[in-house]
Measured scan of single mutants.
Amino acid sequence: TEYKLVVVGAGGVGKSALTIQLIQNHFVDEYDPTIEDSYRKQVVIDGETCLLDILDTAGQEEYSAMRDQYMRTGEGFLCVFAINNTKSFEDIHQYREQIKRVKDSDDVPMVLVGNKCDLAARTVESRQAQDLARSYGIPYIETSAKTRQGVEDAFYTLVREIRQH
Rank of each mutant, 00 (worst) to 15 (best):
Q24G: 13
I20N: 01
D107H: 08
A145R: 05
V111M: 09
R148E: 14
G150T: 14
V7N: 02
K15I: 00
L78A: 05
K15D: 00
L22Y: 04
S38Q: 01
Q21M: 09
Q128A: 11
Y70C: 09
Q128G: 11
Q42P: 08
N115R: 08
G9I: 00
E125R: 08
E2V: 03
M71D: 14
I162S: 12
P109R: 01
A82P: 03
Q130M: 01
V80F: 13
A82G: 06
R160M: 12
A120H: 08
G59N: 08
E62P: 04
G137A: 10
I23V: 06
D32I: 10
F27D: 00
R96H: 03
Q42S: 08
V44I: 01
G14F: 00
R67P: 15
G12I: 15
G114N: 06
Q24S: 04
I35F: 13
S88R: 04
I23T: 05
Q164C: 11
G114M: 14
G76D: 05
F77S: 01
I99W: 01
Q128D: 12
G9E: 13
D118H: 12
V8M: 08
V113G: 07
M66I: 03
I138V: 12
P33C: 07
A121E: 14
Q149F: 07
I20R: 02
C79G: 03
T19E: 10
D32F: 10
I99L: 08
M66N: 14
A10L: 12
V102K: 01
D56K: 05
Q21I: 13
Y3M: 10
G47F: 01
L78V: 03
E36M: 04
V8N: 04
E61Y: 14
A133Y: 15
E48H: 09
L78P: 01
S135K: 14
T147V: 12
V108S: 03
A17H: 00
T34K: 01
D29F: 02
D37F: 00
L158I: 12
T73I: 01
Q94R: 13
E125Y: 10
Q21A: 11
V8F: 13
C79M: 07
D118Q: 10
E125F: 11
A145I: 11
S16I: 00
C79S: 01
D46F: 09
F77R: 01
Q94E: 10
D104E: 05
Y63R: 15
Y70H: 04
Y70R: 05
I23P: 00
V43E: 02
C117A: 13
S126H: 07
D37G: 01
A65W: 09
S126M: 10
V111L: 14
V111I: 13
D107F: 02
G14L: 00
I23Q: 12
G11R: 15
A129W: 09
T49E: 01
R101S: 06
G59F: 11
T19H: 04
P139S: 12
G11M: 15
G150C: 03
I54T: 12
G137F: 10
K87G: 02
K146N: 15
L78W: 05
Y63V: 14
L78I: 11
Y140T: 03
A82S: 06
S135C: 15
V8T: 03
D153L: 10
T57E: 09
E142T: 13
Q98R: 05
V43N: 06
T1Q: 05
R163I: 14
R160K: 09
S126G: 12
R160A: 12
M110F: 03
R67M: 14
V6H: 11
L55A: 10
I20F: 00
K87Q: 08
N25Y: 06
C117E: 10
T34Y: 00
S144I: 14
E97L: 03
I20T: 01
I138R: 04
R67E: 15
Y63L: 08
Y136K: 13
G114A: 11
Q164I: 06
V7K: 04
Q21P: 01
Y136M: 06
K100E: 02
V28Y: 07
I45S: 11
C79R: 01
D56S: 00
S126R: 09
I138S: 06
T157Y: 12
G137S: 14
R40F: 00
Q69S: 08
R96T: 00
F89L: 03
R160I: 07
T143F: 07
Q69H: 03
R134W: 10
M71Y: 04
V124T: 10
L132C: 11
K103M: 12
R160N: 13
G14E: 00
N85G: 07
S105P: 03
A82D: 11
S16N: 12
V44P: 06
E152M: 12
N84I: 12
G12C: 15
G14H: 01
V113Y: 03
G59Y: 07
Y95S: 03
I45Y: 10
G137I: 13
V124P: 14
V151K: 14
Q164M: 11
K103S: 04
Y31H: 14
F81G: 05
E90H: 00
Q164A: 12
D29Y: 03
D56C: 01
D46K: 13
V108L: 06
D68E: 07
T147G: 14
M71H: 04
I45G: 08
V111G: 13
Y140L: 12
R67V: 13
E2K: 01
I92F: 09
G47P: 08
G76N: 06
G114H: 09
F155S: 09
T49L: 02
V108A: 05
N115S: 13
P33D: 01
S135R: 12
Q164H: 07
P139N: 12
Q149D: 10
R96M: 07
S126Q: 12
A120S: 07
L51Y: 06
E75K: 06
L132P: 12
A121S: 11
E90S: 08
L18R: 00
Q21Y: 13
P139Q: 14
V43D: 02
E62V: 09
P33N: 02
L5F: 04
D104L: 06
I23D: 04
G11E: 15
C50M: 04
E125W: 06
